[in-house]
Nucleic acid binder design. Structure first.
Length: 505
RNA sequence: GGCCCGUUCGUCUAGGGGUUAGGACGCAUCCCUUUCACGGAUGAAACACGGGUUCGAUUCCCGUACGGGCUACCA
């Protein structure tokens, strides 16, 4: 019988969760949805030196904003396997229990080496032209551990409380095979695997031990994580095996990485061309701060949609999906093996698609605070109409104001290219007359304006729409001209024409 | 350096032993439009290279190159 699908996202609270992490969370979430399983948030805070205040809450907030909600775990209501924070689980002694089991079985050992001794070992090996210095089956014979020290000495050191770690005893030369859902069979020789530290000298487990213990105890069915974990997977296989849990271990899936657009490595937070964090993040350690997708104006639906299509595709040509649709479609079979460069331009396009789905009322709700922050006020109908006109040109609501400033503030300058090209000796007289014609209009609406404009040309000669646009808005582009003039109102348009005609000669 | 993973238009990708190698973003052109945009149409643009296997390889295998990851008492 197939195990119930239970997957987890297990970040460490060492900083803001970036988009790569969110994507990993998303794929876990979607897989759980697809199979009616559980999605768990576990906090892997075993490194006390890297703990960052606020990071855990950030992770919770970021997932919440994205709509990627765990149904079990830290911040989302603990489930039957609480606690979900490894630092708390450590207090329960569960990691030590498994470590002791490994030691008892002869698959792990105590190591008393100091940092200096470890460095000396690495230097010695480097000097001896060893390409990859590591604590392994060969080098451990020259180190201070329970394999080289006498039993009495080890007991004495332990009783004294001498600082020590527990290391995995990796066999000398053994082929380790494992199956990855995305990559198929992977084979690694154990000589490539070092004697990983399982329990640190502060008593905390390392990731290697902790995630295995937790995945087993929490009945995780699939371990889905980034490709950066692939090289340590063989060590993990060994741990499961020595614990007698190889048949109970979760299936493995290593996701391709999200790469920088220019093709230089994993996406990094030091990137200025686009946000890398879902929400703005301020690092309390170095006071650096980063703009988030939310604050940059992205809709969470768009952000999630972008992420879903980075490394996965539905198998057809569709690209716009809700979270729910994704949850019905997602499969690891359709996840790529190769890393995907993130394309900020396409991300904007996705947001535009979602922007266009919004009603003018919704856009007005979002735009009103922006307008007010500029110290400007307009009535609701004006704002709704403005949104209707301007949205076709925008990717984000936060572009609305810059795109249509002239709806709120009279222009002070006039597009020089258009003026140079279209303003001539007759223009002043011609448009002064047009102003007079407009002044005589009683019904100030789009159709009347358009008809009046067309009719006026019989007497005034050929008029230019773009020139009229520049005279009234200052800029060369914008929404429907007569819609715009209608919105602005008769008094405002006449005043603007006066100002323009006065300024241009 | 070593080990692991990967490689289809600039980017995200579909496809897969015999195809005009499909779509999307971006770009260009045209149509619509006396403005602006949307929209529509069209176009330029890819199977990294070399060997095999095969009647036939972009597709399968092996090398090479290139890219990425890992190489901590970090995750």
């Amino acid at each position: 019988m197939e195990k119930r699908v239970r997957v987890r996202f297990a970040p460490s609270p060492t900083g803001g969760l970036h988009m790569g992490g969110v994507r990993t969370a998303l794929f876990n979430y979607l897989f759980a949805k697809k199979h009616g399983g559980d999605f768990i948030l576990r906090i892997e805070d075993t490194d006390q030196t890297r703990f960052v205040d606020g990071a855990e809450q950030y992770i919770i907030d970021a997932l919440t904003w994205c709509g990627i909600k765990p149904n079990e775990g830290v911040g989302f209501g603990d489930g039957p396997y609480a606690p979900y924070r490894q630092s708390e689980r450590k207090e329960l002694g569960i990691y030590k229990k498994y470590a002791d089991q490994l030691i008892a079985g002869g698959h792990a050992y105590y190591a008393f080496d100091t940092e200096e001794e470890l460095n000396a070992m690495r230097e010695r090996l480097t000097a001896a032209k060893v390409v990859a210095p590591q604590y392994n089956a060969v080098t451990r014979q020259n180190m201070r551990n329970s394999l080289t020290l006498s039993e009495d000495e080890v007991k004495r050191l332990l009783d004294e409380g001498a600082p020590h770690v527990v290391r995995l005893k990796v066999p000398r030369n053994e082929e380790i095979r494992f199956h990855d859902i995305i990559r198929g069979w992977v084979v690694v020789n154990s000589t490539q695997v070092d004697d990983k530290v399982l329990l640190k000298s502060d008593g905390m487990p390392t990731y290697h031990l902790a995630h295995i213990v937790d995945d087993i105890e929490m009945k995780i069915s699939h371990a889905v994580r980034g490709e950066e974990w692939l090289p340590s997977a063989p060590a993990h296989i060994l741990i499961y095996r020595y614990l007698g849990l190889e048949n109970d271990m979760p299936k493995l899936a290593h996701l391709p990485l999200i790469l920088n657009p220019d093709g230089n490595g994993k996406i990094s937070k030091r990137e200025s061309r686009f946000p890398v964090f879902p929400l703005s993040w301020s690092d309390p350690r170095d006071k650096s701060s980063y703009l988030g997708y939310k604050e940059a104006g992205y809709y969470p639906e768009a952000f999630v949609n972008v992420l879903a299509l980075l490394g996965w595709n539905p198998g057809n040509n569709e690209e716009i999906f809700t979270l729910e649709q994704l949850g019905n479609l997602f499969e690891f079979e359709r996840v790529n093996k190769s890393g995907a460069k993130f394309d900020p331009e396409k991300a904007k396009w996705f947001n535009q698609q979602y922007l266009r789905k919004k009603t003018d009322e919704e856009l007005a709700d979002a735009f009103t605070p922006i307008l007010e922050s500029k110290g400007l006020k307009k009535d609701r109908a004006f704002i709704v109409e403005f949104c209707r006109l301007i949205k076709e040109k925008a990717h984000f609501v936060n572009e609305f104001y810059d795109l249509g400033t002239y709806f709120f503030v009279a222009p002070t300058g006039y597009d020089e290219k258009v003026i140079a090209k279209k303003w001539n000796a007759q223009s002043k007289e011609q448009y002064t007359k047009l102003r007079t014609v407009f002044a005589g209009i009683s019904a100030w609406d789009t159709h009347t304006l358009h008809d009046t404009f067309n009719a006026a040309q019989t007497d005034l000669g050929k008029l230019d729409m773009q020139l009229l646009r520049v005279l009234t808005s200052g800029v060369a582009g914008g929404p429907q001209l007569f819609d715009m003039l209608a919105m602005l109102g008769k008094d405002e348009v006449l005043a603007r024409l006066d100002a323009a005609l006065n300024k241009l000669s």
